[in-house]
Design a protein around this nucleic acid. Structure first.
Length: 112
DNA sequence: AATTTGACATATA
DNA sequence: CTATATGCCAAAT
């Protein structure tokens, strides 16, 4: 008997979605950090899953995709309005930019 | 229903 | 800086 509700993908995917939804305003995380927070091993493996899910499920699950950036703190999107939209959103959340298109992840400090 | 394809990264060299 | 290798899911067909 599986208790699988409709509209719910995989448990692993749902876990990542929950983690992203748990990100408070003014906080920025990288794909790898979210993946690791979701309990994913490896370095850049879970990051891809986060990106896939985030890119596809953000609209459906209302995820704060703009709070997710690259490990370097740069905007993940390289083209399109998404990058500018994300930058503006982050700035609105109170995130500090150390450079154009680059955010200060030190606010997150998940590894202290 | 099953198969195929695409994809917003990271680490290492 | 560029190139290569890793490995998974969701959406489209």
């Amino acid at each position: 008997m599986d208790s699988e509700a409709d509209g719910m993908p995989n448990a692993s995917t749902m876990l990542i979605i929950e983690c992203i939804k748990a990100i408070p305003p003014g906080m920025v995380l990288s794909y790898g950090d979210v993946a690791r927070m979701a309990g994913y091993p490896g370095g850049g493996l879970g990051a891809r899953q986060v990106a896939r899910i985030l890119a596809s499920m953000s609209a459906k699950y209302d995820l704060p995709w703009w709070r997710v950036v690259k490990k370097d703190g740069s905007i993940a999107l390289g083209s399109g309005q998404g990058a500018e939209l994300q930058a503006e959103r982050l700035r609105q959340e109170g995130v500090l930019f150390i450079a154009p298109g680059k955010v200060d992840m030190r606010r997150s400090m998940y590894s202290t």
